[in-house]
Design a protein around this nucleic acid. Sequence first.
RNA 1: GCGGGAGUAGCUCAGCUGGUAGAGCGGCAGCCUUCCAAGCUGCAGGUCGCGGGUUCGAACCUCGUCUCCCGCUCCA
Length: 509
Amino acid sequence: MSNAPKPAAAATTEGTLANIVSHAKEYGFVFQSSEIYDGLAAVYDYGPNGVELKNNLKQLWWKAMTQLHQNVVGIDAAIFMHPLTWKASGHVDGFSDPMIDNLDSKKRYRADVLLEDRAAEHEKNGELARAETLLAEMGRLLTSEDLAGVKQLIIDEKIVCPVSKTGNWTDVRQFNLMFSTQVGAVAEDSSQIYLRPETAQGIFVNFLNVQKSARQKVPFGIAQIGKAFRNEIVARQFIFRMREFEQMELQFFVRPGTEGEWYEHWKTMRRRWHEALGLPAAKLRFHDHDKLAHYAKAAVDIEYEFPFGFKEIEGIHSRGDFDLTQHQTLSKKKQQYFDADIDPATGKAYGNYVPFVVETSVGADRLFLATLCQAYQEETITEGEGEQQQTKTRTLLRLHPAVAPIKAAIFPLVKKDGMPEKATEIFNSLRHDFRVIMEERDAIGKRYTRQDLIGTPFCIVVDGQTLEDDTVTVRHRDSREQTRMPIAELRAYIGEAVSFSRIFEKLEG
RNA sequence: GCGGGAGUAGCUCAGCUGGUAGAGCGGCAGCCUUCCAAGCUGCAGGUCGCGGGUUCGAACCUCGUCUCCCGCUCCA
């Protein structure tokens, strides 16, 4: 330990988004999709280290849900769903609006709303017939998807922008939230279906299948991790807003009347989970929705302070019985649960009802980005003494060991005297339990640095002493300090540090 | 969508008034190395984002276009 670096007075700074994007690419975390073709806007690929980190985050969420709760079970529903699903959920009608922009004020409006407002004016002026004609014409044009006709109608009606007072409009464009495709091998027989814009509906339509097959009683939850697809109007901020993204959703089914307390419960639990993972409390906040979505009775976001400001990483919604009732109506299949528990108020069973739902939905990619932003640090360190003293910058990822892509790197101090062989032996003894790597190339300092850059928490070094007494040094990423320990203790030592248990313990506060 | 900035080797960047493309780091091979991006030798690596135009000649001027970043706007 005598040659270990002196503990450094370290000043750390966080990275800008540009630093982080660059780091993510350089070290194999995130690449732009189809980069060699100039990329595809708002689509990204995860590289070798990125996929490990993301998988670890997903595993951690999955186990925190299904392993820790006997009344939460998982599902993996298909991305393709019956088209009526999206009618029921409100996505078809609610998110295919004709949009128009005013070129002077740069304001964007829904074309149909502009026309409806004008019709209302006509009506107010006593021109009832004119109002009706206008609405009928608009309806005809929208149904036939004649967007140019809609624009012409706006011009004919001399509708001007309330802000700029001009009629300098762009063309009317359809905002399509959902991506559509065809199912059916033969073109003429194929029908249009959508890539799901959220994973929740796969859970709702399976509500009874799961409840029965998993022998669950309300309250219980269904967890799912899966891809979802949305045509974003403006996709920005790296992987924060992607067209293809991954959601980690829990839909928790409760007895009507108890949704309030469950909403509070999950609000608390989910925030605690993010903190246990290493997102500091000061950089997390709740943000209540003022305007609620069509399905929600209460909604709150958990926001993290990214380099570009506080942004949502998870949403918690009290969805009531909206979704199940909608599916019950459209599918004509009862979506009821028979509750045999006795209601103390009446002395009878609660009986049949459509359960209420409390949803927690985390963006896996947003969580990944938050984790990366939080972990990325540039540290100014001072080394040596007196005239030898020098200041340099160390860039590292302070990832929680449980989510780090590589748990430990094993280095022979030098490539001779049987050290590489000893290192290989250690590597082989650990690789069944942990993702570890062995590196014998380059100077030891360079190898340490490479591991700092990808967030590897431990570097195990085989040196001369190892050959005599089977002990190694374990160098810690965050402090750069070293501990000497017997090879035989490595497995338990690393296992303790990277265990999900350390995180789960903090959830039970 | 609007405004601003950027795009040259794997990365970070230099490249003057238009005249055959550069550095550091990294990579590869070898030597040497007992603890924090060490040293020596050698090698490889570029359609200067892409496409037009001007010019004897374009990384540089010009027009267009794509992508990314920042700010605004928008967004369940």
